[in-house]
Design a protein around this nucleic acid. Sequence first.
DNA 1: CCGCGGGCCTGAGAGC
DNA 2: TGCTCTCAGGCCCGCG
Length: 264
Amino acid sequence: MEGARIERVETRRADLRSPFPADFVARLQGQRVRALRRRAKYLLADLESGDTLLMHLGMSGSFRVVKGRKDAVQGDFYFERSRLDVHDHVLFTMSSGATIVFNDPRRFGQMDVIDAAGLTTNRSLKSLGPEPLDRAFNASALARALKGKKTTLKAALSDQRVVAGLGNIYVCEALHRAGLSPKRKASTLAMASGEPRPGAAALADAIQAVLKDAIARQHRYRGDDRFRVYDREGQRCPRRGCPGTIKRIVQAGRSTFFCPVCQR
DNA sequence: CCGCGGGCCTGAGAGC
DNA sequence: TGCTCTCAGGCCCGCG
């Protein structure tokens, strides 16, 4: 997509989680994609017009690139429409001849077009916390974010306003790596007399390690047996020398997996 | 404002 | 084997 022009956009239904904006197609067609980037769990494609295409995969969303030949036009596309799935909801036909297909069975995904001001005012973007993979993210940044949080570490880390980009699974994984209990009060890792508490450094490191590892290994959220604690209730704790057994509890309506022995 | 619970949606997996 | 049922996730909304 990057550097190519969006020749045609087709939405194959009226909505994902919410309806596509009325001018969705009009504001995209004919625009060159200046740059692709990410903020939290959102994908952003900056366009020549100054608008930005905002995309979220939700739970089950994915993109695939279908290559075609421009001289083999099938309808308005460069490939056989019979190759489309019922859950292929948005098609971007690019000037490169490739078609980018957005597939999302559960339709928890999101697509929107925002203007430049929207980058700071859009509801989805404006309250996001720090990026854990930014250089600026460290124990102090995390401690500041957790300051005054009355809730548990699990709930705080799941809150995109505190730290951007962690989902249920990676919160569990990061807390285990850091040796911190998901039930612990979040503010206990906040600053104390100008210094981050010891656990904050461990947690900041663990968050970064979990995300880098997941990206490098191309984790999938289900059917993936490479998590240390997620979906491992009743199994031995993977920490060296720890005799604990992974436990499952429910916090804020979501499953938490942790080791009660080594996570304090 | 904050935190929590419910709801959206489908398919994988469990249970009969 | 095949049917039904539950439940998982991210995010938004409404409630207290």
